[in-house]
Amino acid sequence: MLSTMQDVPLTVTRILQHGMTIHGTSQITTWTGEAEPQRRTFAEVGRRATQLANALRDELGIDGDQRVATLMWNNAEHVEAYFAIPSMGAVLHTLNLRLPAEQLVWIVNHAADRAVIVNGSLLPLLAPLLPHLPTVEHVVVAGPGDRSLLTGTDARVHEYEDLIAGRPTTYDWPELDERSAAAMCYTSGTTGDPKGVVYSHRSIYLHSMQVNMAESMGLTDRDTSLVVVPQFHVNAWGLPHATFMTGINMLMPDRFLQPAPLAEMIERERPSHAAAVPTIWQGLLAEVTANPRDLSSMKQVTIGGAACPPSLME
């Protein structure tokens, strides 16, 4: 006997739609290094993600399960790509900007990425690789950076804001099989060539639910999470998806990962939670020991990637 309950696919699309409607007033704050950070509501991020999906389909010709790579810091545009690409049926491929150039080339070619969305500040990393990336037909640049580095590339170059401007804010999202690919991450090449892991829509949905459980991070729409763990590191431990499921506000550090700006953004933006590897916290501890700041808003810290030293816990 089968149940009579509703049976719907557990997809990234449903997380996007839930976050931009039920939690539409929650915010993503991206640190800019200037007096005022960039602020976007979940509703705005959802609309822009929808516009990005339209642009990827209509302008770049992305269809089916083609791979779209991101070479980006943690910021609102990266979250928009997180939702747009899987929701339209394509596959998000986050590139680890810490890897050696030869490993990045191998990974992009192995995944057969058709397009790369890149932050302008990372063009010095991407531009020398492009002659060795025959599958990459499009480069989409977001944020400030030296575009002249892309002169002579065979790939078509697009400006992120120009690309999505005027695009429809609705999309006929496909009904995807929840077991289909949503995102890809690759290991480093410490034991031979890097290995790829393909996340399903279902796995991301279920993982988002687990992240939000009280036994895990247990955050709510009254919390703000400082997401330092990179979005290319196992999907930032699921936080971009989990936040849209529960309405948790996100504070994104972009390229400002040094101890001093992290201390400043905690003092100014008052997050209640943060997630990062131990080396980040060791640097922050040294910074605030030398230059005390008000970090009293912080109630919980999630540490992963390596064991946290007991001395750091204390």
Rank of each mutant, 00 (worst) to 15 (best):
S3D: 04
Q6A: 12
D7R: 05
L10I: 02
T13L: 07
L16R: 12
Q17R: 15
T21P: 10
T25I: 03
Q27C: 08
I28V: 10
T29F: 05
T32C: 13
G33K: 04
R40W: 10
V45P: 07
G46N: 11
G46Q: 11
A49M: 07
Q51W: 00
L52D: 05
G64R: 01
A69P: 09
A69R: 08
W73T: 14
N75G: 03
A76M: 03
A84F: 07
P86E: 06
P86D: 06
G89N: 01
A90T: 03
V91Y: 03
L92S: 07
R98K: 11
L99A: 13
L99T: 11
E102N: 15
E102A: 14
E102F: 12
A112V: 10
V116D: 00
I117L: 04
N119G: 04
L126G: 12
L126I: 10
P128R: 08
V141R: 03
V141F: 02
G143T: 08
G145A: 00
S148Y: 01
L149S: 03
T151G: 14
G152P: 13
H158C: 12
E161A: 15
E161I: 09
L163V: 11
A165F: 13
G166K: 06
D172F: 03
Y186W: 08
T187S: 15
T190M: 05
G192H: 15
D193K: 09
P194N: 07
K195I: 02
K195V: 06
K195N: 05
V197I: 09
H201S: 10
I204F: 12
L206A: 10
H207S: 13
H207I: 12
S208A: 11
S225L: 14
V227I: 10
Q231N: 15
H233S: 10
H233R: 01
P240R: 03
A242D: 09
F244E: 06
F244N: 02
T246L: 00
P253V: 09
I266S: 01
A274C: 14
A286S: 14
E287S: 07
R293Q: 06
D294L: 03
L295E: 07
L295A: 10
S296F: 06
K299I: 02
Q300E: 04
P309S: 09
P309Y: 02
